[in-house]
Each structure stands twice: as structure tokens, then as C-alpha cells.
């Protein structure tokens, strides 16, 4: 039954080219285009810009695609990706209210299955967006190498591969967490706009939360701040994975705080959405 819900939601999304383009392809395509433009402009003005741009951009030794992948996995859950993945997620979560199609499918499966199916498909969209972003970063690196005549290498040690996997997983979880607020907003308000804007507003509030709470003595040394701010929790996890300087001032139990915060911000909105949706009258979608 859950498999049917996932299959149908996946099929519908596959026909929604607009949502797929904006949520999966737009940022990677723009990333490649803007990076290419930047490289070409920098190359054309190489003499003028000498000393003004980071030397590793134009000069230097071989360009390591392995390092590019690890860096890309760590940076993936950035605000631009969060916003554009949210377009696809909001369409999936609020689409049946917007198109008044709950009446067509709610009799064909159970409500928890239908919502879970949507979340699974959003999780898959994030995987697709991750691959697209990784590929675009690799392409941009290759263009950089071609423009500046740098050789390309690929090295991925066991530790780097583990970092890459863990950073990818952390970024994926952070984006999924962000979209879960869209799920809850969609079910509570039956509105696509709410599914889009509620996570943005909450995300902005959470971004500024440390600045508000730090003067009050609330820091990442305690539990409250990481649990209230999943973005901060993600940063803690990334610092643990990357190690080095980033991990120098980590608080105690950083991993537990990070994992718990993401799990709570994924699990609680999902559970609330399922409970509410189970009781919801669909007299008017």
C-alpha cells in the first residue's frame, strides 16, 4: 500500500516538469553558467586581476575532483538550494489541496500512507538535487581546469569517502528537515503559498536565533540552542565530520545534539501533519 502511494506520487512528479526543473536543475545549471562566466572573465582579465583573486583559482597544481566533491557535499544545504528544493516539496505537499485531487486518491489508500509517500518522494527529490549539484560542481571544476589550463586529478581516500558520505547525508537531512515545515504548513493551511513561505520565515527566525539568545547566555554548550536551531545543529555535525580547525571549539555531545535536533525537526512536524491530516475534513480541498 505504501509502495502504491510512493509509485503514484513519483509518477505524478515525473510529469510535473516545472516543479522538477526549479527544485532539481535550476541551481546546478545557474551554478555552472555563473561559474563559467566568472572563469572566462577572470581569464580575460588575468593580468589586471593578478593579486586580487585567490591564487588557487587561476594558478596552482592539479585540480582534485575528489576534494571538489567533499567540499560540495558539505556546502550543499545552502539557502539557495533550500529555497529551490522547497518549490518541489511544496508542490508535492500542497498539490492535492491546490488541484482539489485529495478526493480522487484518498479513497485509494490510507491517509498516513499517502502523506508518507509524499515525504519519501521529497526525500528522493533531494537525492536528485544532491546528485545534480555534485555533478554541476564537478563540471564547473572541469571548466575551471580547462580555462586556466590546470591538470585534473581524482583522489578519494577512505577517510575522504567517509567524509563525503557523511556530509552528503547531513546535507540531505537538513534539506529534508526544512521541507517538513512545508508539509506541516500545507496540511494545516491547505495552501501552497503557506507551504512555501512558512519554512522560509521559520528558517530566517532560526538563523537569527543564536544572535538573540547568545547575549542571554544561551550557547551551543547547552541543549536548547542546537535543539531550537536545526541549521546550527547541521553546522555542528559538519564540523565534527570535517574535523581540523572547524572542530576546534565544538561543545560536548555535539553529534548527539546535531542528530537529535534534525531528528526532532523532521519527526515532530511529520507526526503532527499525519495526526492532523487523519482528522481533517476534505469537504473542500
Amino acid at each position: 500500500m505504501l509502495a502504491d502511494a510512493i509509485r503514484s506520487e513519483t509518477y505524478r512528479l515525473s510529469k510535473n516538469r516545472t516543479a522538477l526543473f526549479w527544485s532539481v536543475l535550476f541551481i546546478p545549471i545557474m551554478g555552472v553558467l555563473l561559474a563559467t562566466l566568472g572563469f572566462v572573465v577572470a581569464k580575460a582579465n588575468e593580468a589586471k586581476l593578478a593579486g586580487k583573486l585567490p591564487p588557487e583559482l587561476m594558478k596552482g597544481g592539479p585540480l582534485d575532483l575528489g576534494l571538489t566533491l567533499v567540499k560540495s557535499a558539505g556546502d550543499f544545504a545552502n539557502p539557495a538550494i533550500l529555497m529551490f528544493v522547497l518549490i518541489g516539496a511544496a508542490t508535492i505537499y500542497a498539490g492535492d489541496y491546490r488541484w482539489e485531487t485529495w478526493r480522487l486518491i484518498s479513497a485509494r489508500n490510507t491517509r498516513p500512507n499517502l502523506l508518507t509517500g509524499k515525504v519519501v518522494v521529497v526525500a528522493l527529490v533531494i537525492v536528485l538535487a544532491t546528485f545534480a549539484a555534485l555533478i554541476s560542481d564537478v563540471i564547473a571544476s572541469l571548466i575551471q581546469a580547462a580555462v586556466f589550463g590546470r591538470p585534473v586529478t581524482f583522489s578519494m581516500t577512505g577517510a575522504a569517502a567517509a567524509d563525503f558520505g557523511l556530509l552528503t547525508l547531513t546535507s540531505w537531512a537538513r534539506i529534508l528537515q526544512f521541507t517538513m515545515l512545508g508539509l506541516l504548513a500545507a496540511v494545516l493551511t491547505r495552501s501552497l503559498l503557506a507551504a512555501l513561505f512558512a519554512p522560509l520565515v521559520i528558517g530566517i527566525a532560526q538563523f537569527f536565533l543564536p544572535q538573540i539568545l547568545l547575549p542571554m547566555g544561551v550557547t551551543t554548550d547547552g541543549w536548547l540552542l542546537p535543539l531550537l536551531s536545526p541549521g546550527l545543529a547541521t553546522d555542528l555535525l559538519k564540523a565534527v565530520i570535517q574535523g581540523g580547525m572547524a572542530a576546534a571549539d565544538l561543545p560536548d555531545h555535539a553529534v548527539v545534539k546535531g542528530v537529535l535536533s534534525l531528528a526532532l525537526w523532521i519527526g515532530v512536524p511529520f507526526a503532527a501533519a499525519v495526526v492532523w491530516f487523519n482528522r481533517q475534513d476534505l469537504s473542500k480541498e
Binding site: 502504491d4 502511494a5 509509485r7 503514484s8 509518477y11 505524478r12 510529469k15 510535473n16 516538469r17 516545472t18 498539490g95 488541484w99 482539489e100 485531487t101 478526493r103 480522487l104 486518491i105 479513497a107 485509494r108 489508500n109
Partner: peptide, 30 residues
């Protein structure tokens, strides 16, 4: 519920889908 079929009021469908795709989508749900 699975033994029932229904059409309530004027049916609405995702506007980007064709008629065949609508039926394919609902067939997968069922």
C-alpha cells in the same frame, strides 16, 4: 474503500497531466 469507485462533483486533475497520465497516476495509487 478499495472496492469502491467514485466521482464527487466536477472532478479536477493536476493541470499539467494528460488524460492518459491521470489514469496512469491513479492506477498506480490503487
Amino acid at each position: 474503500m478499495r472496492r469502491m469507485g467514485s466521482m464527487i462533483e466536477t472532478p479536477r486533475f493536476p493541470p499539467f497531466m494528460t488524460a492518459r497520465q491521470v489514469l496512469e497516476w491513479l492506477a498506480r495509487a490503487h
